[in-house]
Design a protein around this nucleic acid. Sequence first.
RNA 1: GCGCCCAUAGUUCAAUGGAUAGAACACCAGCCUUCUAAGCUGGCUAUGUAGGUUCGAUUCCUGCUGGGCGUACCA
Length: 568
Amino acid sequence: MYYIDRIKELIKEELSVKEIDFSYPSESKFGDLSFACFVIAKQEKTNPVQLANDYVKKIKNSGIKDYFSDVKAVGPYINFFFSNYFLAINVISEIKKENEYGFKPKNTGRKIMIEYSNGNTHKEYHVGHLRNIAYGDSVKNILIANSNKVYPVSYINDFGIHVAKTIWNWQKNPVFEERPEDKGYLLGKCYSEASRKLNKEKEEGIETGKEEVSSIMTSIEKRSGGDYELWKKTRDWSVNYFNNIYKELNISFKETYFESEMIEKGLKIVDDLVEKNILTKSKGAIIADLEKYDLGVLPVIRSDKTALYPVADLALASKKFEEYDLDESIYVVDVRQSLYFKQLFKLIELSGYDKKLTHLSYDFVTLPEGMMASRTGNVITYEDLKNNIYSKIYNETKKRHDNWSEKKIEKVSMSLTISIIKFEMLKVGAEKTITFDIDEAARFEGFTACYLQYTYARASSLIRKSGFKIKLIKTDFESLKTDKEKELLVKMARFKEAIEIAAKRYNPSELAKYVFELAQIFNDYYHETNILKADTRVKEARIQLIKSLSKVLSLGFSLLGIETLEEM
RNA sequence: GCGCCCAUAGUUCAAUGGAUAGAACACCAGCCUUCUAAGCUGGCUAUGUAGGUUCGAUUCCUGCUGGGCGUACCA
């Protein structure tokens, strides 16, 4: 148990109260830890102000009083002021001792599969996908840090109608084959062009394109012939393209599933469910009538006999459960599919599985000029975003470090670019729509990845320049006397809580906020305190403090999927 | 129509039912012969609306207004 938790336990013991709702005051004049006496006073049928006073007297006359520099009652609140010395010696030792300070023991919790990224082949990879992958990957990290055994998997939709649309347009425009860009990237362009054409035809009342696309879809599903061969070739381009993106983002999966590999099994499941009357025929299609669960109707097979999304999803769910012994299966998919997932989960339940299924939804990413949709071409692709941010970062880095090698400048700029992309996607709550402003995201100041990386680089620089390795045991913790030092210590001690809250709410923004606040305290401390110029004993103690800070920052970044930079 | 989500400073976001509603950006005024100024300090400005529950509501409940999304062959 960590120091602050031990302190809390000691307080509860001393006051003989089982449950205390501790909080951390927003202002230093109210101490470092506090609790309000309203609830206990009500239970004891006494006055909260009086009770607070009695409690303070009790603490001051007890054996635990030395842990605090002061304990005060302010109205119904009791405010504890930690002793810097005990806080420093305990917190710094705890951070030093554990490689993954604040994390819970690995693989002792539940077994969870989390599916995210979910790219569509033959389509663009845009900022919406980036939100998905950054969010899913960070939730994965956070769940692991909370003791769960987690299997990250990706499901690639390589077999929907979008594929047929792209192939339709690709065949009509041989020029695509000649263009120099990455083929996976080009497929995305080809898709949005196809959508625009088909929409235009629809408005004009022309059906030919739609019929051609439908015929291509049927032909691919038969798995032979020219359309099928082209599908295989183009599909591989997309898959390679995704793999390169994942590599750049430093994200990897335990398994990658493909819709095309699920269909056959899915159709068998559908047959089975039709037999069991769970699925029914209606208007030429096969549907799940879920009206009695207030979930409407879910079409499963089109009236032209081609498969819709649930076919593959049913097969995938069953595959996951067969191959892994899971306590929970999480799907990270945007909020627009909430109803679909309720329907799907009901269908999975009806087909006999009794598993915890979670749709982890997040709101979508829009642009200042309106809703983003690759169908209309109104998107910011991963490339657009990456190149835009990279060039800004590259210029700034070059300006600051004209003595650095070209290679180093590029490496640092790329690393910062990826940090920025991930952080922008994680810093707001999942239920908030992100109106994505590309210039805003490429900022360097404020609540941004650059600010955090800069803070970390600064701490690293101090540690490097301190030049000596001090044994912790010889550190003079009495030297850490200032309020800012205490503030840093308390904040670091609360890292564990930040992880717990983030895990409980599946919410990486809690951690983003945490590391930002920690960085702010440090920057403030840095400016008002001499570290390398202090007396040796004080300097040694401060460097120990900064080493701890550096470690907590780095662990915090890692949970957000962000790598640290020693210099920038 | 029905269902889900959202509404806080000029803007983008915070706030397990608790102390004077916090940040960031923008704007204004300062701080580098000194540890990375991608930094720090100060100033300015906010809970859509009407009720209810509570010792206490940005938070929970209801109505209203405004916006977004979904609602049988897209995913």
